[in-house]
Design a protein around this nucleic acid. Sequence first.
DNA 1: ACACTATATGAGTCTTCACTCATATAGAAA
DNA 2: TTTCTATATGAGTGAAGACTCATATAGTGT
Lengths: 106, 106
Amino acid sequence: MQSLNKTITQKKANLLTAIAHPNRIKILEELRTEIKCNCELAPALGLEQSNLSRHLKVLTQSGILISWKDGLRVNYKIADARIFKILDQIESVALRTVPVLESEED
Amino acid sequence: MQSLNKTITQKKANLLTAIAHPNRIKILEELRTEIKCNCELAPALGLEQSNLSRHLKVLTQSGILISWKDGLRVNYKIADARIFKILDQIESVALRTVPVLESEED
DNA sequence: ACACTATATGAGTCTTCACTCATATAGAAA
DNA sequence: TTTCTATATGAGTGAAGACTCATATAGTGT
């Protein structure tokens, strides 16, 4: 039960870690309504190709995205739309939460 | 609009980063129904005092926890209960998402 | 004042992450 | 087969994160 809880906690942390990067959040927003490939995402997000490729790998390996080849391209889509409930929830919290000011931090 | 979007995306990433650690998720679960201090959380989570103190600092500085002194102790409580909607959502995704197998990763 | 308890933090180590450049691979099209 | 396009990845760098030990700080009680 402790080890089970540990496992699910670790899974939650892994999923959150996969989402917790500005570029990856932007990728998910780009894919909210459309299927896109690396070559469409790169210019849309202003990311270097290899960097984008690695971010997409993080999201795919964590199970958040699904990818498949289409000729030269690799397309990506959202595996589970509930990921957007999380993003929308976090946004509503982000808009209201008042973090401690820099000057009070240390 | 781009810079505004950038800011909110960064805020979302910062919040997610603050939550995205097993020990911090456990801390939040400990505080789901009760106010607790460092000295109560340390044994409950089996964390070294200084380590726990730093995790609590991350959560407090991101605005997820609120802390106040009570004699020698420092108490912590959840700033915004909506954080649990996020944790519960992520759990439901974590329970169903099938990540890519290790052997397929590389 | 002195000892005791709770918390915070400096310093050091080790690991992981984000990014870039260069190169490899794979498929398309000529 | 040669060339072009799209993607992946090795290698290197610099930054950030998690953790620990030792010590500092702050409040309690004697």
